[in-house]
Amino acid sequence: MKNKIYETMDAAVADIPDGVTILSPGFSGVGVPRNLIAALNRQGAKGLTGVSNNAGTIDENVDIGTLVEAGQMKKMICAFTASTHPSQVTPFTRMYNNDEIEAELVPQGTLAERLRCAAAGIGGFYTPTSVGTELAEGKEHREFNGRMHVLELPLPGDYGLIRCWKADTAGNLVFRLTQRNFNPLMAMAATVTIVEVEEEIVEAGELDPDLIHVAGIYVDRMVRIPVGGIWV
């Protein structure tokens, strides 16, 4: 069995080049691959495109906003390009207002389905979401069963940075509660999938095959979060 375990977060992200697309999951601070993002921040790759639910928060935790603030991101594709409240000014907000970063705004369910579509080898899909709004302008429209839909295209990534609860040496992943969110989709939509694992990585065969959330064939690299790592 191919060894997928890396000793450090830094080793796991060392070869990520400039200009690639990074899939970065997490929702409301849960399931965010903070240790891998911190390593990518130290590594310094630039000109990156990020796919994430939002472009970072106002709290001090490491997240995709850390890479935005460091000037490593060229573009963000996310469901929020403005904060829900004007008082919340993130590094992304400042840079976006100054035209220092590009962004594509995507409804959250469309973002999830575009990732799923990329993973599933589907060429595109029609959704009723955004029909009649300015977000649908310029998109192909088509009516099905009397209801208008817009065409949305797959959203693949070069590297997926993933946070999970349990894993085995084959790369099988298990998530806990709302940690799952975008993680399985991004693990499956990325060409290279790198995972930070909260619990000890157990031997293949020790996890129940019926309770796996992401099959190990999608996973390329895993690192257990070390003592002193970022646990929030």
């Binding site: 390009t81 004007p86 962004a103 705004l105 995507v106 409804p107 959250q108 469309t110 979401t129 955004s130």
Partner: peptide, 16 residues
Amino acid sequence: SRKGGGIGGAMDLAAG
């Protein structure tokens, strides 16, 4: 008057 927007899941919820 503000650049960008915050959609989150609102458009999907409104449609679905």
